[in-house]
Design a protein around this nucleic acid. Structure first.
Length: 189
DNA sequence: AGGCCTCGAGATCG
DNA sequence: CTCGAGGCCT
């Protein structure tokens, strides 16, 4: 039976992975729904504002438009999506399977990165992009995707691309993963 | 206008 | 992963 390399151990791991996925934060769930114009950033904004999927589903265009960075187009896209029968069925199915619908707003630590616009580029030595982003966000940073004159720091790793060139041209402070880790270590309890 | 997010394409890699 | 075009928001 196990000639395909997918035996009891793999089944167990897969089962665990599925269980874990049910406990992910609401922002990940919203992103996974694949709503048009709602990517990672908008998903986080919506999750932190509504805190529970039921609240988001019950909202209206005006309320959505009142949220920073959410305008007419995204508001309508969200409302239209949750009005669909297929969406309602999917949501009820997920609920029946015990998927987490809450967003836990983690307390942000004040640091030198608080309210700073930071861009990541290249491959970091130990942290993945997601991990680095999560770490910086925890310390109050606003991680954005492109370099401009509003960018405060650029966290660069190996094989950094055009973002690094642009940052240097603008005279933006370049940080390494080591710099960031050393800095946040000061705030660990 | 300017900033930057979304999303698809193509390169990179385990 | 990076890049860039297109499009959304203020």
């Amino acid at each position: 039976m196990s000639h395909d390399g997918f035996g009891d151990k793999s089944v167990s791991k897969l089962f665990d992975a599925i269980e874990d996925s049910k406990h992910q934060e609401l922002d990940k769930l919203i992103y996974a729904l694949g709503i048009r114009h709602v990517g990672e950033k908008a998903s986080r904004i919506l999750a932190e504002y509504y805190l529970h999927l039921d609240n988001l589903m019950a909202t209206d265009v005006e309320t959505l438009r009142g949220i920073k960075d959410i305008g007419e187009i995204i508001a309508k896209s969200v409302v239209d999506f949750f009005a669909l029968d297929s969406t309602k069925q999917l949501v009820e199915y997920l609920r029946s399977q015990g998927v987490n619908f809450d967003q836990h707003v983690s307390a942000k630590v004040t640091s030198i990165f608080t309210d700073k616009n930071i861009v990541l580029t290249g491959t970091l030595p130990t942290l993945s992009r997601k991990e680095a982003t999560a770490l910086l966000v925890k310390y109050g940073a606003n991680v954005v995707s492109s370099v401009s004159k509003k960018t405060d720091y650029v966290l660069a790793g190996e094989e950094a691309g055009s973002k690094l060139d642009k940052a240097q041209a603008l005279g933006i402070t370049i940080l390494s993963e080591e710099d960031v880790l050393r800095e946040v270590a000061k705030y660990e309890d």
